[in-house]
């Protein structure tokens, strides 16, 4: 069991006892992760925050309707990602996310205290380019690539989140990464 899994089962056990008393812990434990996951899918800070917030509000409402044994048995991480993903899909259906990104949108790349400001800006710029490239990728490839290569989830967990066979997930991750690589290289060469 990894440290991550241990935290997950602790949070699930706490929610099993008392949702109201432990909901804050759920938000502080997974807030950054859910926000990062959504941001990497939509590449827009404002949309990402809205969706991340809606995700936790929906989670709170759902938890209220679950009996304690069901709450204790939850794979919380995958469950939250599934809720977030449904919301991302709904929005994507309503309107395609803009593929044009300003430098500002890339600022959430953590600044290293020892790093020169110019180096941070450069890194932020390359993060922005990367997010832009991700955004050009179809959602069916973007999602598994984000989960596997950014968030570091296992194929089994991604299969659970996407409700797909592991084989499909693996194929889509590889295909997505290849498409991303090709797109990214083309753009970079074009810029040279």
């Amino acid at each position: 069991m990894t440290a991550d899994d241990r935290v997950q089962s602790e949070v699930a056990a706490a929610l099993g006892r008392d949702v109201d008393a432990n909901f804050e812990r759920l938000v502080t434990t997974y807030g950054d992760r859910v926000f990062a996951f959504v941001l990497n899918l939509v590449a827009d800070r404002f949309v990402a925050e809205e969706i991340a917030q809606e995700t936790f509000v929906a989670a709170y409402r759902a938890l209220g309707g679950y009996a304690p044994p069901r709450r204790r048995a939850l794979s919380i991480r995958a469950w939250l990602y599934t809720i977030a993903l449904n919301r991302v899909r709904n929005r994507a259906r309503a309107r395609e996310f803009s593929a044009s990104l300003s430098l500002d949108d890339a600022l959430p790349v953590a600044a290293d205290a020892r790093e020169e400001p110019s180096a941070h800006a450069e890194r932020a710029e390359s993060a922005a380019e990367l997010r832009a490239a991700l955004l050009r990728l179809a959602l069916r490839y973007r999602t598994p690539v984000v989960l596997r290569h950014i968030d570091g989830r296992s194929y089994a967990e991604i299969a659970e989140i996407l409700d797909q066979p592991v084989g499909t997930v693996k194929a889509n991750v590889h295909r997505g990464l290849a498409l991303l690589q090709a797109d990214y290289e083309t753009r970079n060469h074009a810029a040279d």
């Binding site: 109201d20 909901f23 804050e24 938000v27 502080t28 807030g31 950054d32 859910v34 926000f35 990062a36 941001l39 990497n40 800070r45 925050e49 991340a52 917030q53 936790f56 509000v57 709170y60 409402r61 959430p108 790349v109 953590a110 890194r123 993060a127 990367l130 997010r131 690539v145 290569h149 950014i150 968030d151 570091g152």
Partner: peptide, 23 residues
């Protein structure tokens, strides 16, 4: 790609969620 993981939720995110659910 892995560097894109280092993202934090905006300042005050947890407080806004708790307020939204009445906690």
């Amino acid at each position: 790609l892995r560097t894109l993981r280092q993202v934090r939720a905006p300042e005050g995110f947890a407080g806004r969620v708790l307020a939204a659910v009445g906690l």
